[in-house]
Design a protein around this nucleic acid. Structure first.
Lengths: 338, 338
DNA sequence: CTGAAAGCGCTAACAC
DNA sequence: GTGTTAGCGCTTTCAG
C-alpha cells in the first residue's frame, strides 16, 4: 500500500503527547544533561516510536549555524579534486557536518557566484581551491568581511589572509627532477602548468634542481599545458627540438600521460630513449601504456587536514592565526623512468 | 585594513531605511509584479547599495522549500559518478538549486543514514545511485512516506516506485559482444560486475548476443570483478583456461583496464591474441597501454536527464507517473579490438 | 498596490 | 529539573 505522505513529526507533537514543554524535548534531543532521568526516558521512547528527525533548517535558523560547509573546486572530474572531496567528506561527516560541493569550471566569475550562494545558505565555513587570478583579492575580502572562516586548498593567494593546505610544490619539482638526473638524464624538459602556485612552484623546484646539479637547459625545453590533450601537443613540440630531450617532467599526471602518448606515437621508446615523470599519482597511472612514475601528493590527506583546520576555526570563538600546511610529496618510481 | 565582520543586511534594515514594510521589500527581492515602479526602484537601489543577500535558511523555513537537492553516489572517485555529479550540477544550477553530494562508499547502511541526513536538511528531492541490496525496499519506502520526490540513477530496484535514468545495460552487453564477434572472436570471456542491474544487464546482453550468433561458451568464461585490481586478478584466472579466450568483455572500463594489464604482463598481444573491450568510456581509456575500446554511456546526459526529471516532479504539485529513461550506448572502437 | 498579522520549527537565555 | 519568553529572517495570507 502506498502510504500517503505524512507530515514530519515536530518537537511540539512529542511535547503535547507527553505533557511536557517543547524545551524539555529539545534538550533531550540535543543531549543536554539537565533533564530528569524519568522524563528523558519517556521522551526518548516517544522519539524512537515516532521516528522523530529534527528539522535542520529550523534548527539552523534558531542556532545560527548550519553545520554545513562549502567546498569549491575547479573540476570534480579531475581525480585530484575528487579525492580531496572524498577526504573532506570523510573528515567532517563524523563531526556532524555536511559538505556542499561546487564546481567553478576553473572560472573565477562562476566561483565568485558560487561563493555568494554558499554564503547566502549560511555555510559555517568554506574550503576553496580557487580559480581567482593570482593577484586578485576582492573575493577573499568579501568572505573575510562576512567573518566566515575559510581555508585555501591547492592554490595559494597573496591577497588572502586565510590558512592554506596543499602539497609542497617546490619539493615536488625538485624530487621529480632529481630523480631524472639520478637516472642519468641531462636534457630534461618540463611541461609547466598554468600560472598558479602549483605550476609555478613545481617549475621553480625543477629549475632549482637543475641549477644545483649544474645542468643548463635551453628555454625551449619548458612548454606549457594543463591536461592530457594539451600535454600531448606540448610533447610534440618538445620532440621536434634539437637536441631532443631525454626526459620530460609533466607538472601533473594528465600532462605526463598525454606526453607519453605523443612519444610512443612517434615511435620513441619509454624509458629507453625518453624518461617521463608526472605528479599527482592519479589512480590510473600504473595502467598507462607505460606505467607512469609520479610524485604522490596525498590528496586525501590534503582534504582531511584542510577540513580539520576549518572545523577548528569554526569551533573556536576567537579567530586563530593563519597557518600554512605543506604536505610532503613522495616519489613513486615506475616503469617510465626505469 | 582588516574590516571587522559585519552583520549581514536583512530585509528589515532595508525596509526601515526606506520607510516601507518588510513585505514590500520581500516582494521586490522575489520579483513579484505587484509593487509600484517607483517603490521598486528605490528598493532595488538600496539593495544594490547594501549588497543585500537573502538568508536562504530563513527563506527555506518560511517557504518550506530549500532549493537544495541531494545526490548520493557510491564513489565519487569513480569518474562515471563524478561525471554524473557534474551533469547534475550543470542542470540544476541555472534553476536556482544547489546540490549536496554524498558518498555512500557502496555501503547500504551509510547510504541510509545519508538519506536521513538529507531529509532532515529538508532537501526538495533526491538523486540516488543506490547501494541497497537488490531486493531491499525499506529505504525507498521511507523516502516515499516522506513524500520527497526522488529519481534512481544507474541502478534499478524493484522495491522502488521511482523514476529511473541510466544506460541501457543489456544493449551495452550486446553491443560489446557483437563487436567482438564481428572482429572474428569466438572464445569470448566476460568479467561480470556485482549483482546489481548494470552488471546483470550487461551480462545478459553478452549472453544474448552469443546465443544469437550460435556461440556456446563454458561457464568458466564468466568471472567476476568490480575494479581494476580485481579485474587484473580475474583476467589471470581467464588466461589459465584451456582453451584460452580470444576476447574479454569487461563490464566496466576499470576491470577491462586491469585485465589488459594482466594480459600484457603475461606477454600476450592485444589485440593480436586477445581483444579487450570495456564500458563507460572513462576519460583515460585512450591513454592506456593499448587504447581501450569501450561503450560510451553518456554519463553527463544521465546526470542531466535525471536532474531534469527530478526538478519537474518537484515543481509539479501532483505526483507524476514514474518513468524509465534508458540512454542508448555508443560503441567507441579503439586499438584494443582492432 | 501596500502592509499587518501570524507563523515556519527550533533554540538561547533566563526564570521558576 | 522544567518551563517561559522571545525571537532567528523570511514568507504566507489576507485585509486595507
Amino acid at each position: 500500500m502506498p502510504n500517503a505522505p505524512t507530515t514530519p513529526v515536530r518537537l511540539k507533537d512529542i511535547a503535547r503527547d507527553l505533557n511536557v514543554s517543547v524545551m524539555t524535548v529539545s534538550k533531550v534531543v540535543r543531549g543536554c544533561a539537565d533533564v530528569g532521568a524519568e522524563t528523558r526516558g519517556r521522551v526518548l521512547a516517544r522519539i524512537k516510536e515516532l521516528n522523530y528527525q529534527p528539522n535542520w533548517v529550523a534548527r539552523s535558523l534558531a542556532a545560527r549555524r548550519t553545520f554545513m560547509i562549502g567546498l569549491i573546486v575547479p573540476d570534480l572530474m579531475h581525480s585530484f579534486f575528487a579525492e580531496i572531496a572524498k577526504g573532506v567528506s570523510a573528515a567532517i561527516r563524523p563531526l556532524g557536518y555536511d559538505v556542499v560541493i561546487c564546481n567553478s569550471e576553473e572560472d573565477s566569475a562562476v566561483e565568485s557566484s558560487e561563493v555568494d550562494r554558499l554564503l547566502a545558505r549560511q555555510v559555517d565555513g568554506l574550503l576553496l581551491a580557487s580559480a581567482q587570478a593570482p593577484s586578485s583579492h576582492s573575493l577573499f575580502e568579501r568572505i573575510e568581511a562576512r567573518g566566515v572562516p575559510y581555508v585555501l586548498i591547492d592554490r595559494r593567494f597573496a591577497g588572502s589572509r586565510a590558512s592554506y593546505v596543499g602539497a609542497d610544490d617546490e619539493a615536488i619539482g625538485r624530487l621529480a627532477t632529481r630523480h631524472l638526473i639520478e637516472r642519468g638524464c641531462r636534457r630534461i624538459a618540463h611541461i609547466a602548468g598554468p600560472p598558479l602556485t602549483p605550476g609555478v612552484g613545481r617549475r621553480k623546484g625543477y629549475q632549482d634542481a637543475l641549477s644545483a646539479a649544474g645542468i643548463a637547459i635551453p628555454d625551449s625545453y619548458v612548454v606549457h599545458a594543463t591536461d592530457d590533450a594539451s600535454g600531448y601537443l606540448a610533447a610534440r613540440r618538445l620532440l621536434a627540438l634539437e637536441p631532443r630531450p631525454d626526459a620530460i617532467f609533466g607538472y601533473n599526471d594528465p600532462t605526463a600521460a598525454g606526453a607519453m602518448k605523443a612519444i610512443l606515437e612517434a615511435g620513441i621508446a619509454i624509458p629507453g630513449e625518453i624518461k617521463v615523470i608526472g605528479a599527482g599519482n592519479v589512480h590510473y597511472s600504473d595502467l598507462l601504456r607505460v606505467p607512469l612514475s609520479t610524485i604522490d601528493q596525498s590528496s586525501t590527506a590534503i582534504g582531511q587536514q584542510a577540513a580539520d583546520m576549518l572545523i577548528k576555526s569554526i569551533s573556536s570563538k576567537r579567530k586563530r592565526p593563519a597557518r600554512t600546511v605543506l604536505i610532503d610529496p613522495i616519489l613513486v618510481p615506475r616503469e617510465s623512468t626505469r
